[in-house]
C-alpha cells in the first residue's frame, strides 16, 4: 500500500534516519550475574542529569533495592521515583510491562519518560529480551535497544564466567562491559578478568566502576563511533567456550541488497537458533547512507538507512556472534548466493 505514495526523498528502506534508533525510545539492557552490582549502577545512573526521565523495568522491587521512601504506593505496578524516573516490575512478561508503559506514557498518566532501562535478573539470557524489540509487531516500532551492558564483579568475575554459561552469554552479547566493585578486589584479579572478558568479547568496550559510579554517558549514549571502532578491532574469528564464535565480515565494494538479504534469510532458516546476534553497517549499492542491519536468532530487525556515514570509511562491516557457525561458512554462503544472483 505504501507504494501508492512514494516519496522521492525516501530511500530503499524508507525515510533516512539521523540515527539508528530514529524516533524510537532508547532502551538500555543491564545484565549481570547475581551480586554483580547492577542495582548500584542503575541507582547511581538514575540520580544523574542524564538519568532523568528514565523508566526502569526490573524483575522485583526487592531486587532493585529501591528505597521504600521513594515508592508512591508499593501496591502499584508502576511507581514514581525522583528525577522524573519511574519503576515498573515485570514478574513474568516483559512485553506486557513495556506495552503498558508505552500506553501510559501516551495517555499522560505517567511521566513522559525518554529512556527505558531494563535490569535483567541475574540468570537471564539477554537473547530473548533482544528479540522482544526486533519487530514492529512486538515493540520494535516504539522501542530500540541502544546498548546491552553487562556488569561483572572484579573479585569473582573470572570464577563466575567459568562456572555459569548464562554469565558467559551475558558477556558475549554485551556492547559494553562494566567491571564493578574494583574497590574491593585486588588489581591482579581485575586484570585477569579484563583479559578473560576481552577473550570472550573483543568487540565490547570495557570499563571499571568504583562503588557503582560510572560516567552516565556510558549508559545513556547511543552506539557511537567508538563502538564502531571496536567492531572493527576484531580482525579474526574468535572461538569461545560453548562453541560460541564471534567474527567480523567486511566488504570494500558496495553490496547488492537482494543477495545479502536472501543469504541471511537462508542462514536464519537453517541455523537461526545459533545466530545469537549479528549487527552491521552496510554500504548497499544504490543507498546514499549506510544501512544498519541487525539479527537476533530467527528475527531480522527492519533495516535502517542513515542520512549520512559517521566517517570517511565506506566499508561494509558486520559482526556475527554464533554458536557453531564459523566465519568461513557464512562468508561462503554470502558468496554463493551472490554468485547465483549474478548468474
Amino acid at each position: 500500500m505504501q507504494e501508492l505514495f512514494p516519496s522521492p526523498a525516501a530511500g530503499r528502506f524508507g525515510r533516512r534516519q539521523k540515527r539508528e534508533r530514529g524516533a524510537r525510545i532508547p532502551v538500555t539492557v543491564v545484565t549481570g550475574f547475581l551480586g554483580a552490582g547492577k542495582t548500584t549502577l542503575v541507582k547511581h545512573f538514575l540520580a544523574t542529569p542524564e538519568g532523568a526521565g528514565t523508566a526502569v523495568l526490573i524483575n522485583e522491587f526487592g531486587e532493585a533495592g529501591i528505597d521504600d521512601a521513594l515508592l508512591r504506593d508499593s501496591t502499584e505496578k508502576t511507581v514514581l521515583l525522583g528525577n522524573g524516573c519511574l519503576c515498573c516490575n515485570f514478574r513474568s512478561d516483559l512485553q506486557v510491562a513495556l506495552h503498558r508503559l508505552v500506553v501510559d506514557r501516551e495517555r499522560g498518566v505517567i511521566p513522559h519518560f525518554g529512556r527505558v532501562l531494563i535490569e535483567t535478573s541475574g540468570l537471564a539470557d539477554p537473547s530473548p529480551i533482544l528479540t522482544t524489540f526486533a519487530t514492529d509487531r512486538a515493540l520494535g516500532g516504539e522501542l530500540f535497544v541502544e546498548a546491552v551492558i553487562a556488569v561483572i564483579a572484579a573479585a569473582d568475575g573470572v570464577k563466575t564466567v567459568e562456572k555459569f554459561a548464562e554469565a558467559r552469554r551475558q558477556v558475549m552479547l554485551a556492547d559494553r562491559i562494566v567491571i564493578s566493585k574494583t574497590d574491593i578486589a585486588d588489581e591482579e584479579a581485575a586484570d585477569t578478568l579484563t583479559t578473560r572478558l576481552r577473550d570472550l568479547n573483543p568487540r565490547a568496550r570495557v570499563i571499571a566502576a568504583d562503588y557503582g559510579r560510572l560516567d552516565p554517558a556510558w549508559i545513556a549514549d547511543a552506539a557511537s563511533a567508538r563502538d564502531g571502532a571496536a567492531f572493527l578491532a576484531e580482525a579474526a574469528e574468535v572461538e569461545h567456550t560453548d562453541g560460541v564464535k564471534s567474527f567480523t565480515l567486511t566488504e570494500d565494494t558496495p553490496l547488492a541488497w537482494e543477495p545479502f538479504a536472501r543469504a541471511m534469510e537462508t542462514l536464519i532458516a537453517l541455523r537461526g537458533a545459533d545466530l545469537l546476534r549479528a549487527k552491521g553497517l552496510l554500504n548497499v549499492a544504490g543507498c546514499r547512507g549506510p544501512v544498519v542491519v541487525q539479527f537476533v536468532q530467527h528475527i531480522a530487525h527492519p533495516p535502517v538507512e542513515l542520512a549520512a556515514w559517521p566517517d570517511a570509511d565506506r566499508k561494509s562491516r558486520i559482526v556475527f556472534i554464533t554458536r557453531d557457525i564459523g566465519e568461513r561458512e557464512v562468508r561462503d554462503l554470502l558468496a554463493a548466493v551472490r554468485g547465483l544472483a549474478k548468474a
Partner: peptide
C-alpha cells in the same frame, strides 16, 4: 533540556 512530568514533554 528535559521537562519531566505528564504535563510537559520534550521528546525528540
Amino acid at each position: 533540556p528535559h521537562l519531566a512530568g505528564p504535563s510537559n514533554v520534550t521528546w525528540n
